[in-house]
Design a binder for these strands. Structure first.
Length: 183
DNA sequence: TAAAGGATAATA
DNA sequence: ATTATCCTTTAT
């Protein structure tokens, strides 16, 4: 299992988002290793993207998005659910990719369709905020057997307030994969 | 379709 | 200190 290098994240966010599909999200705790295959993501392009948290500038919460690429940005939404993002591009850009769904590969609890459930299934919470994805207990890896993927582009979800940005097709998922949250 | 839930950021 | 807001889920 090959861990993705820092350089993988330090590129155009849309490109990284598309290439993240089919990769393995690996999370190790003391006793157990959980693996989920990424099947659905959304790209958040940075401070100019009104749908992204970083569009409001650097704050206590969003400063991780402006940090170096290859880090996890985990936040609590609606007081009840966690969302996992991956920081991309260079420092100061504020770009990130939201992981919306994974397909269970190993030791996954329950359903994983949707950002909140994904985090619940992998037992992700704010303790993993700002975690380095090049660490040994939480990272993204190249799958052992690369498969050919059909990728579908769709508008993002839950961002109607973002004006023209709400219509941009920055959500990507693997075609006909039963684990994507909505089609 | 609407309410829940808690942290966050803006206002004071 | 108080309030509006929120990249969702679940239940009615």
């Amino acid at each position: 299992m090959k861990k993705l290098p820092r350089a993988f994240y330090d590129r155009d966010t849309v490109l990284v988002a598309r290439e993240l599909l089919g990769k393995w999200l690996v999370l190790r705790t003391e006793k157990i290793e959980r693996i989920g295959k990424i099947v659905e993501v959304e790209a958040y392009l940075g401070a100019h993207d009104l749908a992204a948290h970083s569009s409001k500038g650097v704050t206590e919460r969003t400063k991780i998005m402006f940090g170096p690429p290859g880090h996890a940005y985990v936040y609590l939404i609606y007081g009840a659910h966690h969302c996992l993002n991956v920081v991309t591009e260079g420092e100061g850009n504020g770009a990130a990719i939201l992981l919306r769904a994974v397909e269970p590969v190993k030791n996954i609890l329950g359903r994983t369709c949707g950002p909140g459930l994904l985090c619940r299934a992998l037992e992700i919470d704010r303790r993993l905020n700002a975690h380095d994805l090049l660490s040994d207990d939480f990272f993204i890896a190249e799958p052992e057997a690369a498969e050919k993927l059909s990728i579908v582009k769709r508008p993002r979800i839950g961002v109607d307030y973002a004006g023209v940005w709400a219509k941009k097709r920055l959500r990507y998922y693997i075609k006909e994969n039963p684990f994507v949250s909505r089609t």
